[in-house]
Simulated scan of single mutants.
Amino acid sequence: MTTTLEKLYRPAGLAMILLASPSLACAQEPAQFSTEKVSVQVETLASGLDNPWSVEVMPDGAFIITELGGSLRIIRDGKTSAPIAGVPKVARQGQGGLLDVALSPDFETSRTLFLSMAVANGSRYGTALVRGELSADGKKLTGVKELFRMNKFTGKGQHFGSRISIASDGSLFFGIGDRGERDRAQDMRDHAGAILHIEPDGSIPADNPYKDGKDGLPEVWSKGHRNPQGIVIDPKNHQLLTVEHGARGGDEINAPQPGKNYGWPVITYGKDYSGAEIGVGQAAEGYEQPLYYWDPSIAPGAIDVYHGAMFPQWDGNLLVSALKYQLLARLERDETGKIVSEERLFEGEFGRIRDVKVAPDGAVLLVTDGDSGALLRVSATDKKS
């Protein structure tokens, strides 16, 4: 059952005022809300960010955040740093720019991080992944190396993907959308419309389904994805999960398996923006069904799995950020992993929610979209629901 969040103390429209004014945002008490299972409070950790896209928590408790225009910054003790030097030039084109940041599992000692981004080749654009080492003082990225660059660039500015999830063996999973050319998602010789899998040095993992390159590109893990912007590996059962944008309806959560095809644009639960039908329907032989879908679309931005001490009531739930309805979706799963219910949190309160991340202390971090974006922290209150 889908429910809406019951607001406790927030006057109408106050969220937008707070986000528009950094000084007010820092001065206000956290806003409090009641959900189906727990009461929460939301505080603003930073505001006035320029189209922030992704956040990670550093070992010392600071936050590292990307901005679409190409800046990588650190937020510590309520202060946002100047842009970190050494970040490669990105193509700020349409939906493209500096996208995800992911910290290596050994970041505390190696200082290694990974970035996904849109890059240019003349007037054409595509998605690339790089790695680098953050200096001890956090001011510079060194040893930058490009690990991956998609093979077919286009002048279009949409569906670049691309978040990164790091497996327990250190390998990298990430997604790239169809780049606005839907049939590319079914071309096994095209990186578009796919979940990709590479080693942290850019080489091909031994378990990739097309590692020999005969039936598909060696980096391809799965195909038939429209625009998978969210990706996560459940740390408890190691299941790979993605969330992707549909067209007019048909946003999906998938659990991509090696060599499987997830249907776009042959099957979909959405329609074209014109209202026309797409493909052959909602199911066909040889194509996988999603774990869950939305119609109408919520425009999902990111996905995480909740395992934390702060909200034991949410253990194992999926958290999906949404742009269109400006909400956080909390999805409960049964013992088989089937999604059985959805609760919609913060709808319309904080603007478009681009990223969601479960912090080490069990709090939930949210990144809001736009040219005055914010980093928010959702934590527990003493009040019982």
Rank of each mutant, 00 (worst) to 15 (best):
S23V: 14
L345M: 15
P200S: 13
D190W: 00
Y287T: 07
D272E: 14
P300Y: 00
V358S: 03
R377P: 07
G202A: 06
I64N: 04
D371N: 14
R73F: 09
G13F: 05
I84M: 09
G246P: 00
I278F: 05
I195W: 00
G230W: 00
W53V: 02
Q95E: 15
D106R: 07
R344G: 03
Y306G: 09
E349C: 11
I298C: 02
Q95H: 08
Q282N: 09
E285F: 07
G94R: 09
F160L: 06
P290V: 04
D183Y: 09
D169Y: 10
L24G: 02
A194T: 15
E56Y: 03
D304P: 02
V320S: 08
A284W: 01
N317S: 15
I233G: 05
P105T: 14
L328K: 02
F350I: 10
R124I: 06
I195C: 04
A380V: 08
L98V: 13
D369E: 15
A128Q: 05
K139L: 08
D190S: 13
E29P: 07
K236C: 08
P83H: 11
A167N: 14
G122Y: 11
P256L: 04
L98H: 05
E335P: 02
V266A: 05
R182I: 09
L328G: 02
Y269Q: 01
K152D: 12
R76K: 15
G279N: 03
V90I: 14
R354T: 01
R226M: 07
R377K: 15
Y273P: 01
A380D: 08
G337P: 15
F173G: 01
A91R: 01
Q158E: 08
Q28N: 12
G143L: 10
A284T: 06
L115V: 13
G155F: 08
M150T: 11
A363V: 07
E343Y: 06
L365I: 12
A299G: 04
G270T: 04
L115H: 11
K338V: 13
I231Y: 02
S341P: 02
A284G: 03
S116M: 07
G373D: 00
T242D: 06
V280G: 04
L98F: 11
G155D: 10
H159C: 06
A380G: 12
V119W: 00
S81L: 05
K223I: 12
G155W: 04
L129I: 15
R179Y: 12
P105M: 12
P209Q: 09
K357Y: 12
N261Q: 03
S47L: 05
V266H: 02
G170N: 08
L8N: 04
R352A: 07
R92H: 12
